[in-house]
Design a protein around this nucleic acid. Structure first.
Length: 834
RNA sequence: GGGCGGAUGGCGAAAUUGGUAGACGCGCUAGUCUUAGGAACUAGUGGGGCGACUCAUGGAGGUUCAAGUCCUCUUCCGCCCACCA
């Protein structure tokens, strides 16, 4: 029987059925065994899986199966992030029911995942659109509300005109909707927020405990949280009682402040705008207000300088006519407005130090504002304002700064901050970039926010016993005019739980990031309908030992999940601080150098590969082609290679495996058999460590090297046949996480007694079997490779030197020249310097 | 503009972390054989040279007995973030 398409289909179907029926991957708590929780970021059920899924889940599956074979109690669940816009868009476009559409996709996707042979415990499967799941979304929301972490706020929000809904700050990419790319506008709405900012400090601090996260993800989160130490400095307004609070991270430059700039929306602007400047200021405010955030942000972006549609491009501003007093030297300085100062950050007002801040420098040049140098480069301490063509932003010594002259500016930051606090002209503060999380969505296909508005009692939370607030079925979705639930009278009208009078339900639904912020906890007890998740289950399984997913979730999803975990810890439901111990971010799958995507039309359907080659060759190919974190350039030809590799193994077992078992050690062997036995041990070592460090590609290549050796080996007697057979047994075990179907089949053929190869013991190697008595040592002359010699490992440096000198080629090179240096790296290399 | 990664044959990539550059695979070339298949097997495959040799890890310097790996400068590419004060 050869490893052809029919046979592959037969084998793969056979074992998939077997795993399913025998529930081989069912996981149960067992205090006696060490647990290992492997999790991939659950998919949005779009129906078909794509190569990105295949890569993500294959990586996870290899890890899961490897840990199973090592004897860990592995939890490896799968579910669906099923709420969201595509289902609703399908409903709008084609009139289908979002629920029906979604469940259809889930069925299709489940079928495809099973065809890949992934080792999921399907009994723990979940879909976030099940009432049984989103009920607990609502429960969590109520808990947060109870703790003051969920609140409603009227505020300008990002509005996507195309999706007809609001977006979180995090969902706005360069001023455009992250999903549909249309430009985002501002709009005032009353929205539900989660107070993630209460957790800023912990979210930041605990990043340091995530030793097994990619450095760059940690950095990205740090930047996103954006803690900055600074000083709020109080500038009195001249001829007025008003005080402008300015936030700066550079108090060391305060003596160089030559003007103050406010955001146009700043509430104090009218207080000091002079009548002569009023018209210009009003016109400017209007102009800025008309800009969307993206236009405003791109104004001074160097890359967009050539834009013709941005009339305000290039740090535009206007003089108010008012003046402020610099508290450190009582200087009278003008107050300006500028579009580049944002009301949302800091205090909405800045002090401008054009000599030491590039933006201020450009603004001052454009509007002819004064400058003064307060930091000098100690190496060239004679910089003059007239010579500057850019701000000086390096370190240096303070000048023109009264009692602080001569101090290094970095040291001065603290000294000046402390001095200001003492003299009451400022106070040191901490500012965060992180904003509260807007979760309201004017959408149908999501979790209804469980709140009720009563004319008598105000905002009333839905009592726990009334959960879930079910999403009404079969309603008409047009995609127009905000929340679809608002048009569903049966849903909206409700009796107030407090006073019993007619009241109205909240008609917004939750952002789907809410759903995905805690699903990993739900898996710990997915069948439990009585509570959000079982504390004991969470205690046993959490944290996730290995989480795998795309880098695109480096900030949002991971930050929200960390926030939820900390919240659950605070209300006593979990004992861990962080949800994910290890994080692996897999690289993208490319085709012809571009990201594989539907919009580019360069996708390869995994299904066609499975039909043509089978799931095992696809798995091996995708793991062999590149390290998991790197981009992967897809090529059909590479699957051919993996297929050949598996085919060769199949033939070897079929034709040459005899099932001979003889007890032997490497000492009983010699020649080719000894060599093969050594390679067997070396390969076990290599593949095991590669699996532990996620170098799946070199793991495969190690196995390819071994199969080359096995093919060359011709057993001469029974003990050599035993070596041959033993090597094949080890081989099949090592390959099992990569190509599980074929390995199950071969393991059975080889007489494996376990129900599944997954229950077989992971092969062990013997370090002493790896040692050779004679090693090849490279001989370099002046660092250039000239010869190689065989050296017995017990030889001393002097003995090796003598041996090297006897070598003919070495002799030829060295003859008649004095040896300056002799370097010997044991068992590796000799370098003779002449 | 900021941050983080990259750059090695025709292609995907290895390189024990400073020690034989190109493992392994794809592709290609030549050959063998057959039950003509998606074959399989054998040999070869970075450039130059008949050769001994020599030149090669984006580019230019440097440190070292020894550099793909460390340092300085530089070019290009990818990703993430961005008037964040």
């Amino acid at each position: 029987m050869s490893y052809n398409t029919n046979e592959i289909q037969r084998i793969e179907e056979k074992w998939q059925k077997f795993w399913d029926e025998k529930k081989i991957f069912k996981s149960e708590m067992d205090a006696a065994k060490e647990k290992y929780y492997v999790l991939e970021m659950f998919p949005y059920p779009s129906g078909k899986i794509h190569m990105g899924h295949v890569r993500n889940y294959t990586i996870a599956d290899v890890i899961a199966r490897f840990r199973m074979m090592q004897g860990y109690n592995v939890l490896h669940p799968m579910g669906y992030d099923a709420f969201g816009q595509p289902a609703e868009n399908a409903a709008i476009k084609r009139g289908v029911d979002p629920a029906e559409w979604t469940y259809g996709c889930i069925d299709e996707m489940t079928h495809e995942l099973k065809r890949m042979g992934f080792s999921y415990d399907w009994d723990r499967g979940l879909s976030t659109c099940d009432a049984e799941y989103y009920k607990w979304n609502q429960w969590i929301f109520l808990k947060m509300y109870e703790k003051g972490l969920a609140y409603k706020k009227e505020s300008p929000v990002n509005w996507c005109p195309s999706c007809d809904t609001t977006l979180a700050n995090e969902e706005v990419i360069n001023g455009a909707c992250w999903r549909c790319k249309s430009e985002v506008k501002q709009k005032d709405l009353s929205q539900w927020y989660l107070k993630i900012t209460d957790y800023s400090e912990r979210l930041l601090e605990d990043l340091d405990t995530l030793k097994h996260w990619p450095e760059r993800v940690v950095t990205m989160q740090k930047n996103w949280i954006g803690k900055s130490f600074g000083v709020e400095i109080f500038f009195k307004v001249k001829d007025s009682n008003e005080v402008i609070k300015v936030f700066t991270t550079r108090p060391d430059t305060i003596f160089g402040a030559t003007y103050v700039v406010l955001a146009p929306e700043h509430p104090l602007v009218d207080k000091f705008t002079t009548s002569a400047n009023k018209a210009a200021v009003e016109a400017f405010k209007k102009q800025v207000a008309a800009l969307s955030k993206s236009e405003r942000v791109s104004g001074t972006d160097a890359s967009s300088e050539s834009r013709h549609d941005a009339p305000l491009a290039g740090a535009s501003g206007v003089f108010t006519g008012g003046y402020a007093i610099n508290p450190v030297n009582n200087e009278i300085i003008p107050i300006w407005l500028a579009d580049y100062v944002l009301m949302e950050y800091g205090t909405g007002a800045i002090m401008a130090v054009p000599t030491h801040d590039q933006r201020d420098f450009e603004f001052a040049n454009k509007h002819q504002l004064p400058m003064r140098i307060v930091i000098q480069d100690p190496a060239r301490p004679d910089l003059k304002v007239e010579q500057m063509d850019a701000a000086y932003v390096e370190e240096g010594k303070l000048v023109n700064s009264a009692q602080f002259n001569g101090i290094n500016n970095v040291e001065a930051m603290r000294a000046i901050g402390e001095w200001m606090e003492k003299t009451n002209i400022g106070k040191t503060t901490i500012h965060w970039r992180l904003r509260d999380w807007l979760i309201s969505r004017q959408r149908y296909w999501g979790t209804p926010i469980p709140m009720i508005y009563c004319d008598c009692c105000g905002v009333v939370p839905v009592p726990e016993k009334d959960l879930p607030v079910a999403l009404p079925e079969k309603i008409k979705i047009t995609g127009q005019g905000g929340s679809p639930l608002a048009y569903c009278q049966d849903f909206v009208n409700v009796k107030c739980p407090k006073c019993g009078k007619p009241a109205r339900r909240e008609t917004d639904t939750m952002a789907t990031f809410f759903d995905s912020s805690w699903y990993y906890l739900r898996y710990c007890s997915a069948q439990d309908t009585s509570q959000v998740f079982d504390k004991k289950g969470a205690k046993y399984w959490m944290a996730v030992d290995q989480y795998i997913g795309g880098i695109e979730h480096a900030i949002l999803h991971l930050l929200y999940s960390r926030f939820f975990t900390k919240f659950f810890k605070d209300i006593g439901l979990v004992s861990v601080d962080e949800p994910f111990v290890r994080l692996l971010t897999q690289g993208m799958v490319l085709k012809d150098g571009e990201v594989m995507s539907k919009s580019r039309g360069n996708t390869v359907d995994p299904d066609t590969i499975i039909v043509k080659y089978g799931a095992d060759p696809l798995r091996v190919c995708i793991l062999f082609a590149a390290p998991p974190e790197d981009q992967l350039e897809w090529s059909d030809g590479a699957v051919d290679g993996s297929w050949k590799f598996l085919n060769r193994l199949d033939r070897l077992v079929e034709d040459k495996f005899k099932g001979v078992k003889v007890n032997y050690t490497i000492k009983d062997l010699s020649g080719a058999a000894e060599e093969l036995e050594r390679e067997r041990h070396a390969t076990i070592k290599k593949v095991t460590s590669d699996l532990e460090t996620y170098k799946f590609n070199t793991g495969v290549s190690a196995m390819m090297i071994l199969i080359n050796a096995i093919e060359k080996f011709a057993p001469k007697d029974e003990i050599e046949q035993a070596v041959f057979d033993q090597t094949l047994r080890s081989f099949v075990l090592l390959l099992a996480p990569y190509a599980p179907h074929l390995c199950e089949e071969l393991w059975q053929k080889m007489g494996g007694t376990e129900a599944s190869i997954i229950k077989a013991k992971w092969p062990q190697y013997d370090e002493s079997a790896l040692k050779r008595s004679v090693v090849e040592v490279v001989v370099q002359i002046n660092g250039k490779l000239r010869s190689k010699i065989d050296v017995p490992i017990e030889f001393t440096s002097d003995q090796v030197r003598d041996l090297a000198m006897q070598n003919e080629i070495v002799h030829k090179w060295v003859e008649g020249k004095p040896i300056r240096k002799f370097i010997y790296v044991p068992e590796k290399l000799i370098n003779i310097v002449i």
